[in-house]
Simulated assay, not measured.
Amino acid sequence: MQLSDERIKLMPLDKLDWDFFLEILTCSPIMQHVSKPLTYDEAKLAFEIRSQSWDIKSDSWLTLPITEIECGEKVGWIALKILNHEAKIAEVGFILKTSVQGKGIASGALKLLKEYAFKELKLNKLVAFCSVHNADSYKLLEKHSFVREACFKQSILINNQYLDTYGYGLCQSDLKLAD
């Protein structure tokens, strides 16, 4: 499986992506809105889980590294996890190296993943969660027609601090209305 546009390509995480995966998950500035940076052992376990083969019946994350086509560098990833197979609801999440944030890369990746989720996987709804302090993420979600559905008080612990998160949703039927 490969998803691409003129700037980026998305392909499933594989065993050769270990160094890249470790770099992201152990970097404090990158992880500031996600969780505490992981230790080597925590990252290794996460990598083993996320690099397994995935299909629509899986309960794990489909993790797709984002590669800039022009330079061939992996700059982040976007991921999808089916939360409710019967209702066809999946969570999406994304993370980028700080050096490429604000350049439209996450936007391109989210567009590709939305199309794949709704057209190929035939999902009904995508949801996403982000810290209320992560304006870049929630603005990106809103740009892509996600609707803020909730604010969850003290729902995530980052650096020994409880933070609120926003919950966003995008139904396939709403997307058709937005087109």
Results as ranks from 00 to 15, higher is better:
residue 176 K to W: 07
residue 66 I to P: 03
residue 91 E to A: 12
residue 52 Q to C: 04
residue 142 E to H: 08
residue 25 L to Y: 15
residue 164 D to M: 07
residue 20 F to K: 01
residue 172 Q to H: 14
residue 123 L to W: 05
residue 113 L to N: 07
residue 58 S to P: 10
residue 1 M to N: 14
residue 99 S to E: 13
residue 41 D to Q: 12
residue 130 C to R: 01
residue 110 L to R: 02
residue 179 D to Q: 10
residue 152 F to W: 14
residue 78 I to P: 05
residue 34 V to W: 08
residue 141 L to R: 07
residue 146 F to P: 08
residue 123 L to K: 04
residue 15 K to N: 11
residue 45 L to N: 10
residue 138 Y to D: 08
residue 49 I to V: 15
residue 3 L to K: 04
residue 49 I to E: 14
residue 42 E to V: 07
residue 18 W to M: 08
residue 32 Q to A: 02
residue 104 G to Q: 05
residue 177 L to Q: 12
residue 154 Q to C: 01
residue 43 A to K: 01
residue 99 S to G: 05
residue 74 K to Q: 14
residue 18 W to Q: 05
residue 126 L to W: 06
residue 113 L to C: 07
residue 145 S to L: 11
residue 35 S to Q: 06
residue 173 S to T: 12
residue 94 F to Q: 10
residue 42 E to Q: 14
residue 178 A to I: 09
residue 130 C to T: 03
residue 51 S to Q: 12
residue 98 T to I: 09
residue 175 L to A: 06
residue 92 V to T: 15
residue 153 K to M: 08
residue 164 D to F: 02
residue 134 N to W: 00
residue 168 Y to E: 10
residue 66 I to Q: 05
residue 114 K to H: 02
residue 159 N to F: 03
residue 145 S to N: 12
residue 101 Q to Y: 07
residue 177 L to R: 13
residue 55 D to E: 13
residue 102 G to R: 02
residue 136 D to T: 08
residue 61 W to G: 05
residue 176 K to Q: 11
residue 89 I to E: 09
residue 172 Q to N: 13
residue 62 L to C: 11
residue 141 L to G: 03
residue 25 L to H: 15
residue 163 L to I: 01
residue 77 W to L: 12
residue 20 F to E: 04
residue 144 H to S: 10
residue 92 V to G: 06
residue 156 I to V: 15
residue 15 K to F: 10
residue 36 K to N: 00
residue 73 E to I: 05
residue 175 L to Q: 10
residue 150 A to N: 13
residue 29 P to W: 03
residue 50 R to D: 15
residue 137 S to W: 05
residue 12 P to F: 01
residue 115 E to Q: 13
residue 12 P to A: 12
residue 14 D to E: 12
residue 103 K to S: 09
residue 79 A to G: 12
residue 123 L to G: 04
residue 140 L to M: 11
residue 147 V to K: 14
residue 110 L to K: 08
residue 24 I to P: 00
residue 121 L to M: 15
residue 118 F to Y: 12
residue 3 L to S: 13
residue 13 L to V: 09
residue 123 L to D: 09
residue 106 A to E: 02
residue 131 S to E: 03
residue 60 S to F: 06
residue 56 I to Q: 09
residue 126 L to T: 01
residue 47 F to D: 06
residue 92 V to A: 07
residue 172 Q to D: 13
residue 75 V to Q: 08
residue 133 H to D: 14
residue 124 N to Q: 13
residue 24 I to Q: 00
residue 171 C to L: 15
residue 151 C to I: 06
residue 171 C to F: 15
residue 127 V to R: 06
residue 51 S to K: 09
residue 119 K to G: 03
residue 2 Q to M: 14
residue 16 L to W: 00
residue 138 Y to Q: 07
residue 139 K to Y: 08
residue 100 V to N: 03
residue 100 V to S: 04
residue 97 K to Q: 12
residue 81 K to L: 12
residue 27 C to S: 14
residue 23 E to I: 00
residue 42 E to K: 04
residue 142 E to D: 10
residue 105 I to M: 03
residue 176 K to Y: 06
residue 178 A to R: 12
residue 19 D to P: 06
residue 63 T to L: 10
residue 102 G to E: 01
residue 125 K to N: 06
residue 28 S to G: 01
